[in-house]
Amino acid sequence: MKEEFITINGCRIFLQRGGEGPPLLWLHGAGGGGRWTPALQRLARRFDVIAPEHPGFGRSDTPAWFDNIHDVAYCVLDLLRALDLRGVHMVGASLGGWVAAEAAVRSTDRLASLTLIGPAGLHMKGVPRPDTFLWTDEEATRALFHDQSLADAMLAVEPDEAEQDRRLKNRFATARLAWAPRWFDPHLEKWLHRIDVPTLVAWGAEDRYLPQVYAAHWGGRIPGSEVHVFPDCGHSPQSEKMDAFCTLLEDFTARIGR
């Protein structure tokens, strides 16, 4: 895996890239990127995995144009063009799933498929959701997982100062994108039918950030999409059910033959 910066529309974007195979663009969630996680390591056996940090997050710049989720989506499309990638499997988790969907309704020209893991971005009236901005760090971490031993392990690691700074920056960037309207774009849902590449929607059955009913809702809005729900799993199937998730994704991309 190598790390580099690429400049998109005047914004330095931090990028991790590793593996061989068809390109797979990984879009991180609100907790931030810049970590070559076990899921990325495994996917790099079959794919050329490209994992940028969004503008405003981690080691990437916070450009003057960083106002809303659309800016991040256009930045992703510019990034695909700048890297001259085609036939891309675009995968986004949580906030990153929202970014991926926003990018895909704008253009699927460079995409082979779309995978959304517990994506934010839509709002179902009457379905209660937690106020994640009122959670303490510990509450936010505990809510990520169904298996609390994973939360315990994560909480046991004391972040160094650089990591603390990145977390704070990520919180700021997340608030900029998701504070109001809270975690959704009222104009996204009406254009989801434009997504014309094979799409997989993955969800943890015990997701405490975004309840599982959203999985079917997304599935119903994106033509021909598949929905998979992982039992005994929280908001991050890619870490809590890493092997099962990666197998699912590998099978999906193999099945669509691209």
Partner: peptide
């Protein structure tokens, strides 16, 4: 008031927020 209420992200600059926290 807990800190999450008093200091929502972005209410001050990053540097000020770090100091306050």
């Amino acid at each position: 008031m807990p800190q999450e209420m008093l200091l929502p992200p972005g209410y001050t600059s990053l540097a000020s927020m770090k100091g306050l926290i």
